[in-house]
Amino acid sequence: MTSTRAGQQELALETREISKHFGAVRAVDELSLVIPRQGTTSIVGPNGSGKSTLVNLLSGVLPLDGGMVIIDGQGLRVVKAHETPDHGLTRTFQEVRLFDQITVWDNIMVVLTERRLFPSLFERAKPSTRQKAQAILEQVGMWDKRDSLAQDLSYGQRKLVEIGRALAMNVNTYLMDEPFAGLFPQMIERVKDIMKQMRADGHTIVFISHNMEIVRELSDRIIVLDSGTLLAAGEVEPVLNSEEVIEAYLGA
């Protein structure tokens, strides 16, 4: 299933006519798009345009109904969630999904430890792993909260821990489903700073947002979805100023 094509190295992600139906609703409808390596790509679109479904398909949380996803030059008709880190991909969730009844510390540690079943039985927290977890928690400003249960944090703090958990994966590509939704301005600045740092470190960021100011500030490229199809893609300003995008957003 591996396809080798010229120019693949520039692409972090590609989809070819992928579809996802929920009953009669075509949440994602034969969608083809490319996401280049490095830099920040934003996905925008009205509610129900298939943004979250797209992220769920790319991360293997939902199975594909059709089409193919190409991650890191590898063509996949079935994306297995547990293999996405091997493809250099991780994500955050729209409705924050932390491991609620364990501590913030363990929420970070759990993605840093051994993936193989048998060796993990004999692994205790190594000093190097602890240092990594501490660095991550300090980066997202949650070091003071390390001993709290994840469920006892405020919404904004939970978002930060979730971003920290994704950072701890240390992969190439980060899919972030509405990282700014429901945050107050101070937190938004913090998340922005973290994302700018990630971009500067050479990671690929794909994020969903409804906030056009933030989209303009952070994005190198933009993808606009409507009814599960690609409406427009490219540089931010030309796309946002194009007639069809304005029409889709204003519903004119």
Binding site: T84, R97, F99, Q101, V110, T113, L117, S120, R124
Partner: peptide
């Protein structure tokens, strides 16, 4: 021995959100 190992921490994560722990590379 089990619950204090990395294995044990993964078990608690499975308890909290099985689908999420899969995304982070574990076969629940």
């Amino acid at each position: 021995f089990i619950v204090s190992s990395s294995f044990g921490r993964v078990l608690t994560a499975i308890r909290e959100d099985e689908q999420a722990i899969e995304v982070f590379g574990y076969r629940a």
